[in-house]
Design a protein around this nucleic acid. Structure first.
Lengths: 165, 165
DNA sequence: GTGAAGTGTCTTGACGTCGAGGTAAATGGG
DNA sequence: CCCATTTACCTCGACGTCAAGACACTTCAC
């Protein structure tokens, strides 16, 4: 089955036969697929009355385990947004009662963001919905293919995640 | 080499051992990698004084071949943005002299967006820069692995690209 | 201890995107 | 033909993000 990137690459080969556009076969697909996934996630979360950005923050806290709290800085590295964005997100989630801001007892510059009970429940429900949707998308691939794909992607993401970028 | 998604998946298995979070091994990596790529692209384009969104539009037109023109609607499907966004993008590119808006002679509702000479040159230069950067990122993988990865990704993107979603 | 550098978070303003809705033109069944 | 539907693009207001910089506190070398 052909996809939009096949058409894109073919067009470049016609227009710029002097260039080697092979990198696009991988990385343009990654970007485009991510964009499609964003849209799909938005729909899935809407059923639980959550925005994607809310899900990202709530689940980061949920994964941290009891007592479900992290510093804004820790949330930054997990969600890949800037500090100003995170401040704004925490404000809005706090206003909705899904998280609470607490002073960090060990560093007076610091803050701890704690998930409320409602926040935890909402995160759990939305996660279940997301996994169901993602399973459907991945049904295109065999389990072995999924494992292979995960491994290849890990090789590309590891440098970004380990060398501060 | 471990990446952030390995840590994320391990955390979920600890916190929610009842759930099968295997889909995240693939799709969270896709989303995170795309985010890293966005940042890297922004840096690469800055050297050519282009924004990512400008690159996306200009190269879509460049790929179309002489006379380098497409309708806003065709640009939508290639760039995965909404029509309001595209109108805005075309406005700004036209103001910078990189594209021109022409009436579509065969449909009076329609518009054709045409690349200017300067727009074409800028697109060509930025593309070369992008490819160099992407090649560096993909050096993590062997040619065979890159081919495999492209094939697996195609299987996931094809349904999105072919069934209107 | 003290001052300089580093760290953690928040503030601000500009910007780009989205979604909903609006207008105008094309299409097609009766 | 004609009217309902569809298609193509644009307008507008709300919203989320970013980058740069401000501020308060901590750390470390001396």
């Amino acid at each position: 089955m052909e996809d939009e990137v096949d058409r894109l690459v073919a067009a470049w080969r016609r227009e710029r036969p002097d260039l080697d556009v092979e990198p696009l076969e991988v990385l343009s697909r990654v970007s485009r697929l991510a964009r499609h996934l964003d849209r799909a996630r938005r729909l899935a979360f809407a059923e639980h009355h959550l925005e994607s950005w809310e899900f990202d923050v709530l689940t980061a806290l949920r994964r941290a385990g009891t007592p479900y709290q992290l510093s804004p800085g820790q949330l930054l590295t997990q969600t890949l947004v800037t500090s100003g964005t995170m401040t704004n997100r925490i404000d809005r989630l706090a206003k909705k009662g899904l998280v609470a801001r607490l002073p960090d007892p060990s560093d007076r510059r610091g803050v701890l963001v704690r998930l409320t009970d409602e926040g935890r429940d909402r995160a759990d429900q939305a996660l279940a919905g997301l996994l169901a949707q993602e399973r459907a998308i991945l049904a295109e691939l065999s389990p072995a293919q999924r494992g292979e794909l995960a491994g290849l992607l890990r090789q590309l993401t590891a440098p970004f995640d380990n060398i501060p970028g």
